[in-house]
Design a binder for these strands. Structure first.
Length: 831
RNA sequence: GCCGGGGUGGCGAAAUCGGCAGACGCAGCGGGCUUAAACCCCGCGGCCGCUCGCGCGGCGUGUGGGUUCGAAUCCCACCCCCGGCACCA
């Protein structure tokens, strides 16, 4: 560094304006021609490092949220590349999904054509960002050579026993006309279109994510935001308790069920059971219904089936239910327990049945009150006088009315009773999760077909690997009938059975698009491999991802599914490690200028293209980073970007306009410039390490202002000034890749600024020799001293007492204590 | 209801191992340059009071208490906003 000749042109030459448009286009072309952003799998001199930003859905235009997510992510990847890593920073397209199909239904283009056009537009918009994406590794999930491997993944999971087909009540979106995973239902409504969700009984494909529930729960070690890890833990919802089997009073024949199993977290309350509640969808409902109750039960079940999730989940409505006419027996006391049906029991949690303990569960309490059932206390509150309860008693207490367990603390009785059940073969300790298996069937066209064939003779058969992909036919009708459009395509449905070769039918549902995005980050490692989804070598070279960034709205969907896939891949010996994303950072959400979510209907959308056109890509990138802390997000104020534009103009001016230079300038001034440069370097480096882009930009602005002022204050030392300019270009490189490249080349270099090593701050220059030290009297500031940073306490006190103002506040009182924090402040405590 | 995160100038924010509150920027105000303009330059800027002024004093980080020489930062109680979960037995 510092090899710049002292040949500054005379001042007064006509200044060239900063013109981002032409600069940015020129350097992007140059990078592409030189392959600056192409990342080899191995670089003998650099360790591999994998940075990843979530790929965009192909909705049509890159919106400001994409820029907000990707631009800082790119700056971070660039920083690590300059720090010496061989950084992979890929991009691609999440290209299957409902919007494409809905556009087709509304009379637009075919989903494939619509998607292709969108990808072309978005690819160009992405290029405009100037990010270091390695475009040779781009993937699109709708490409047959991608979804071939999504299907291969399905079959891998199938062979591992992790994919199964089951008839079960499923979330049905009444507007999208398809099923949804639990994670895609928000407050009883479709996550995407907000239409009401109801339950439909359908044969559907599930992925057994629950097999990994325990391991997925263990996420404490991950370097992820705590709130995201917590969301996942809450979503998985591990609950310890016991299962108890209640024998039926009148079991049916040898083949039928002879008992009802329940899960409870309160085995200590088993003797307080006065009723049993089955979910309306419970498989035993029909059998247990007596003739006398049949009409009432059927009516109740019918109504439950018709009501939407939102109606059923309302917690403030009175408990409803109906008696089946049957009884079961308490396994501990052999008491008769009436069996009811009520919709507060959920078919999908535990066993779908609840033992009703009204004295010690608020819901059961309300139910018992509603229907006049007894409420016997079995866990006595402290100093309980035997009177009836006004509400369920949920706290620990002393066991009563529980036979041999009476007198025991209820916390002990939990385990004692669970063990007792186990010994007698009536259940025992167990763990239940809130997490459900992942429903992946979608009755839609625009997704990867599930590679299964149904044969009347051989049953369900996986499509052999060498017949993949099961390709989507182009010519189909997109009517949303609630059945997959593929079902009406004769050419698609007809298949030969892989086992017997006879006539068979293909599965016509497609896969949830979260399947596609659960492994895309693996495909980037080896995007063109036609033999494997990802080769062992490529996986070893890049996985797991070192730094992932993206929105936390995916906490319980994508981020959980991807972890599940990774663990299944690990168990199949395909990938190293246990977790796909070592470090993950979630940026906040960018909002409209009015502080609300941007949407066309609100008319508060700011298009990135217009911002880039007006201010340049670098300015737009920097402004998004400058808004505030990245994890926080916030409103986009279109007026604020002028501040960035002014700053970059100033950068341009400081870095390109002629300055009076002398071989050896005034030493104090030269040192001041060098100090500013290195102090800024230390700040910028620290900020990038901690992903604090807003303060990084502020530090660069301060630095620019310092250079601006010192330029005006007379002739500059050529060495110090040259170094200051080079450091400016290097420090700008992560945030403003185009401008930095331009300035780097104007400083006389031929190679790319983005291939330079990140400079090291000189500690000696970072340290300050003198500081302005506030002097407090009794904690209130009464003066300031400019003193050497390492001044000792005695010298500082003396200097402080020399101040008239400090003395006047001491007012002749005695100093009883002095507190001196070198470099920070001096406090004189007087009495 | 439960669990997270957060309340700092007109606005976005900075400063959290307790040590100068408001860096940096927007908007605003005053001045300059210009025939004119600002995506130009210089300057001012928390609030109140005293002062011609230099200055000086008081108040001030959602509210009320507390700990401390010293609190935006730590503790207790409360209010408000955002996010997640919510009849999960």
């Amino acid at each position: 560094m510092g090899g710049r000749p002292v040949t500054a042109p005379a001042r007064g030459a006509r200044a060239e304006r900063y013109d981002p448009t032409s600069i940015e286009r020129r350097w992007r072309d140059w990078w592409d021609e030189r392959g600056v952003n192409t990342t080899p799998d191995h670089d003998p001199e650099r360790p591999n490092r994998y940075h990843l930003t979530m790929f965009p859905y192909t909705s049509g235009d890159l919106h400001i949220g994409h820029w907000f997510a990707m631009a800082p992510s790119d700056a971070l990847a660039r920083f690590h590349r300059m720090r010496g890593s061989n950084v992979l920073f890929p991009i691609g397209f999440d290209a299957f999904g409902l919007p494409a199909e809905n556009a087709a239904i509304q009379g637009g283009a075919h989903p494939a054509d619509w998607t292709r056009a969108n990808i072309e537009r978005m690819r160009e918009q992405l290029r405009g960002m100037g990010a270091m994406f390695d475009l040779s590794r781009e993937v699109a999930t709708n490409a047959p050579d991608y979804y071939r491997w999504t299907q291969w993944w399905f079959l891998l999971l199938y062979r591992q026993g992790l994919a199964y087909r089951k008839e079960a009540p499923a979330n049905w979106c009444t507007s999208c006309n398809t099923t949804l995973a639990n994670e895609q239902v928000l407050e009883g409504r479709c996550e995407r279109c907000h239409a009401l969700v109801e339950q439909r009984r359908l044969a559907q494909w599930f992925l057994r994510i629950t097999r990994y529930a325990d391991e997925l729960l263990q996420n404490e070690e991950l370097d992820w935001p705590e709130h995201v890890k917590l969301m996942q833990r809450n979503w998985i919802g591990r609950s310890e308790g016991a299962e108890a089997a209640f024998p039926l009073e009148a079991p049916e024949g040898a083949s039928g069920a002879s008992e009802i199993r329940v899960f409870t977290t309160r085995p200590d309350t088993l003797c307080g059971v006065t009723f049993m509640v089955l979910a309306p969808e419970h498989e035993l409902v029909e059998r247990l219904t007596s003739e006398g109750q049949r009409a009432a039960v059927e009516e109740y079940v019918r109504q439950a089936a018709q009501s939407t999730d939102i109606e059923r989940q309302a917690t403030d409505r009175p408990k409803s239910g109906v008696f089946t006419g049957s009884y079961c027996l308490n396994p501990l006391t052999a008491e008769r327990v009436p069996i009811w049906i009520a919709d507060y029991a959920l078919a999908s949690y535990g066993t779908g049945a609840v033992m009703g303990v009204p004295a010690h569960d608020q819901r059961d309490f309300e139910f018992a009150q509603q229907f006049g059932l007894p409420i016997p206390v079995v866990v006595a509150p402290p100093a309980w006088d035997g009177s009836p309860l006004a509400a369920a008693y949920l706290e620990p207490g002393t066991m009563v009315g529980s036979g041999q367990f009476d007198g025991m603390p209820s916390e002990e009785a939990k385990e004692a009773i669970a063990r007792h059940l186990e010994e007698r073969g009536q259940g025992g300790p167990t763990v239940t999760f809130r997490l459900r298996d992942w429903l992946i069937s979608r009755q839609r066209y625009w997704g990867a077909p599930i590679p299964i064939v149904y044969c009347d003779g051989c049953g369900e058969q996986p499509v052999p690997d060498d017949e993949l992909p099961v390709e989507l036919p182009y010519d189909v009708e997109f009517l949303p009938t609630g059945e997959s459009p593929l079902a009406r395509s004769e050419e698609f449905v007809a298949a030969a059975c892989p086992a017997c070769g006879g006539a068979a039918r293909r599965e016509t549902d497609t896969m949830d698009t979260f399947m596609c995005s659960s492994w895309y980050f693996m495909r980037y490692c080896d995007p063109h491999n036609s033999e494997h989804a990802v080769s062992a070598e490529a996986a070893a070279a890049w996985l797991p991802v070192d730094q992932y960034t993206g929105g936390s709205e995916h906490a319980t969907m994508h981020l959980l599914y991807a972890r599940f896939f990774y663990k299944a891949a690990r168990d199949a010996g395909l990938v190293p490690g246990d977790e796909p994303f070592t470090r993950y950072f979630s940026q906040g959400q960018i909002l409209g200028p009015d502080g609300r979510r941007m949407s066309k209907s609100r008319g508060n959308v700011v298009a990135p293209d217009t911002q880039v056109e007006r201010w340049g890509s670098d300015a737009f990138r920097c402004y998004l980073m400058f808004l505030g802390p990245w994890e926080q997000g916030g409103p986009y104020d279109p007026d604020g970007i002028v501040g960035i534009a002014r700053w970059l103009n100033r950068v341009w001016s400081v870095a390109t306009e002629p300055v009076d230079l002398v071989e050896a300038g005034e030493p104090g001034a030269a040192r001041a410039v060098r100090q500013a440069a290195h102090q800024t370097l230390a700040r910028v480096t620290g900020d990038l390490e901690r992903l604090r882009f807003n303060t990084m930009i502020a530090a660069l602005m301060e630095y620019t202002n310092t250079l601006w002022r010192s330029r005006e204050s007379g002739a500059q030392d050529s060495g110090a000034w040259g170094e200051a300019q080079e450091l400016l270009a290097l420090m700008l490189a992560p945030a403003c890749p185009h401008l930095a490249e331009e300035l780097w080349h104007r400083a006389g270099h031929d190679d790319s600024v983005h291939r330079q090593p990140w400079p090291e701050a000189d500690e000696e220059l970072v340290r300050r020799e003198t500081v302005e030290l506030p002097v407090q009297v009794n904690g209130r500031i009464r003066g300031r001293l400019t003193i050497p940073a390492d001044a000792d306490e005695e010298a500082v006190c003396q200097a402080a007492l020399a101040s008239e103002r400090v003395r006047s506040h001491l007012d002749g009182r005695e100093i009883v204590r002095t507190i001196y924090i070198p470099g920070r402040m001096l406090n004189l405590v007087a009495r």
